[in-house]
């Protein structure tokens, strides 16, 4: 479990950073999304990994810390997902505007030789 999660975060971050540094705006958007997925998983991991433990009390259930997982980290992830989603949408709009103005999808608005 820990190994899968950490390998997942690592792969997503590495791919995200690589794409973020690419010269095409579309690659940058995908890179930013991958990066935000990695960050969301990371926040989730910071609440400690527990299998088969619910984050909320059932009605009538006993509040026993040993049987529950940390709900706060999950709440944080939810907020982060919403914000990340909105920002990606906003970036897409800027990307399209830039494409419309310059006719190219290069991040600097003009093609460079050798790309």
């Amino acid at each position: 479990m820990e190994l899968i999660l950490s390998a997942g975060i690592g792969t997503l971050t590495a791919s995200g950073v690589y794409l973020l540094l690419r010269p095409r705006t579309y690659q940058v958007v995908i890179g930013l999304s991958l990066l935000s997925y990695a960050v969301n998983l990371f926040i989730f991991g910071m609440g400690r990994l527990r299998v088969n433990a619910p984050p909320i009390l059932e009605p009538g259930g006993v509040g026993d810390l040993a049987r529950h997982t940390d709900p706060l980290a999950q709440a944080l992830v939810l907020t982060a997902i919403v914000i990340g989603f909105a920002m990606t949408a906003l970036f897409l709009v800027v990307l399209l505007a830039s494409r419309g103005f310059t006719g190219t999808d290069h991040v600097d608005g003009r093609e460079q030789r050798g790309d």
Partner: peptide
Amino acid sequence: VKAGLHYVAINLAAS
């Protein structure tokens, strides 16, 4: 738009 693109990208990475 060009300056904005860079600004948004940098700030999203910083976030």
